[in-house]
């Protein structure tokens, strides 16, 4: 270890089906300025090869490493070890709530993605497959739309920012209570799909889904999803916006419009 390394203490929730769960303490040496995910990597590499956790990109783009750090849902890849250690010693690392735990810090995200599928959200832009695969300069014929940055940038929140990390599902009190709830990410997805689609039937179906038993009316307005989202997607704002759209539609129907 170099002089730049620091000792970090962590207590990690360990779980295997049928064996119950417990907190296990680890001490590892990591480089100064490192992230909690690096500390977990160090545990896995030097102390315990059986530790289960999920990670991929290491730069908050994939959402794989979402977990509860000192009781708060965060992405382990961008959470500073020093900051987490200042909050709580040892740093407590647990899996997300409201999703079944497969083992240790890994949760089963099948239910989360089933909800995202229900929202019909397609995050991949349709133009992407048409782009040239070669590294040659783009052909002059390919016209790229000029991106205009709106003046009120703080209101310009793209749902495409969603990295499907599941943090909003973990923090949502309605998700904890109701298996049939679509949840913040899927409802925000429905809102976004309705913005993007030109298909009236699709749009009406999605609004009916949002107005259904698992929809927006199950939300208890705690705004935790928006407060905890690492990508500023604002699911709660979109849920409230969907409610407004549903009420407008109901009001219109009442008067035969």
């Amino acid at each position: 270890m170099t002089a730049e390394s620091v000792a970090v203490d962590l207590e990690v929730l360990r779980y295997r089906p049928g064996e119950g769960s417990r907190l296990e303490n680890f001490s590892v040496q990591v480089a100064k300025g490192t992230k909690v995910l690096d500390a977990l990597d160090a545990i896995w590499a030097t102390l315990d090869h059986s530790l289960m956790f999920r990670r991929a990109c290491h730069h908050s783009s994939c959402g794989a490493c979402a977990m509860r750090i000192n009781g708060r849902e965060r992405l382990a890849c961008v959470t500073q070890v020093a900051e987490a250690a200042e909050e709580h010693q040892p740093i407590r690392v647990e899996p997300l709530h409201n999703l079944p735990v497969v083992g240790d810090l890994v949760v089963d995200v099948a239910g989360f993605f089933a909800r995202m599928t229900a929202s019909d959200l397609v995050i991949t832009r349709s133009a992407e497959p048409e782009l040239p695969v070669s590294v040659d300069p783009l052909p002059a014929s390919l016209s790229l739309r000029q991106v205009v940055v709106p003046e009120d940038l703080d209101r310009f929140i793209r749902f495409e920012s969603c990295i499907e990390c599941g943090i909003c599902v973990s923090v949502c009190p309605s998700m904890a209570a109701d298996d049939g709830f679509l949840g913040p990410a899927a409802l925000a997805g429905i809102h976004r799909t309705r913005e993007a689609t030109g298909d009236a039937t699709e749009s009406a179906h999605l609004l009916a889904l949002a107005d259904g038993d698992g929809g927006v009316w199950r939300c208890h307005s705690s705004f935790e999803c928006t407060a905890s989202c690492p990508q500023a997607v604002d699911p709660a704002g979109r849920i409230m916006s969907l409610r407004g759209q549903i009420l407008a539609r109901r009001w219109g129907r009442m008067w035969g419009r």
Binding site: Y15, L23, R68, V101, A176, S222
Partner: peptide, 29 residues
């Protein structure tokens, strides 16, 4: 080592709305 929670720690728990550790004012409200 100590026992932290019962089995399947991440599963739904309706009483979770009362667990306000790390939560913001909306959850308190």
């Amino acid at each position: 080592m100590k026992v932290a929670e019962e089995a399947a720690p991440g599963l739904r728990r309706p009483s979770r709305w009362l667990d306000l550790r790390g939560r913001h004012e909306g959850a308190w409200a």
